[in-house]
């Protein structure tokens, strides 16, 4: 455990905070969860940096996929799940394609996002997509301008999806409700208001 410094000057407490890595701060189960969800042997990472070198997000942000892998292996769950950079992966899979250890760092990141979501840590745009799909079956639903364009093209105004056949929506919603995802999205979005 990091040494607590009860100095009266809060600024100094921050400046001088204990930056040691303590094994006791780590959760050894975390990497196992990441591996189970991501279906990849993340603990085999040898930190070569091929992933970060491949990453389109790295050069324009502080997002370092290699560091997420490292922290996951060390069980630094808290640090990983609360890091806003976790959501900067575009899932381009370049790192996965090139990883010499044959790992899927992208899927490890997806797993970490899943674990963050379990703790209600999730950007709002993800939840809005959930709401849209729950409502219409589409993440990007139809609109009037598009309906007019479709008509001009000789297509039905509504595509042959849940849009045209809303009778399929209850089944779809049942799936989402099975995992209580919509409920959770509504709650988190409401709490954030």
């Amino acid at each position: 455990m990091a040494v607590k410094k009860d100095y009266k000057d809060q600024k100094l407490v921050e400046k001088l905070q204990d930056r040691n890595y303590y094994v006791s701060d780590s959760n050894p189960e975390f990497i196992k969860e990441v591996e189970r969800l991501g279906r990849t042997a993340a603990h085999m990472c040898y930190q070569c940096g091929t992933c970060t070198g491949s990453c389109p997000s790295a050069p324009r942000s502080s997002y370092r996929i290699r560091l997420f892998m490292r922290k996951a292996i060390l069980g630094l769950e808290e640090e990983v799940l609360t890091d806003p950079d976790l959501w900067l992966c575009t899932t381009c899979y370049s790192c996965t394609d090139r990883c010499p250890r044959n790992l899927a760092p992208t899927d490890a990141i997806m797993a970490m996002r899943n674990l963050a979501f379990k703790r209600d840590i999730v950007p709002r745009n993800f939840l809005k997509t959930v709401q849209a799909i729950y409502k219409t079956g589409h993440g990007v639903p139809n609109n009037d301008a598009n309906r007019a364009a479709r008509k001009k093209l000789g297509l039905d105004e509504e595509p042959e999806t849940t849009h045209k056949y809303p009778e399929y929506l209850p089944g779809l919603r049942k799936i989402i409700d099975h995992y209580k995802m919509k409920e959770k999205a509504d709650r988190i979005l409401a709490e954030g208001e």
Binding site: Q47, C48, G49, T50, G53, C55, A58, P59, R66
Partner: peptide, 13 residues
Amino acid sequence: VNAEDTLLGRPLD
């Protein structure tokens, strides 16, 4: 050449 200088923790081109 794209890589990460892993000691700097920075990607390089």
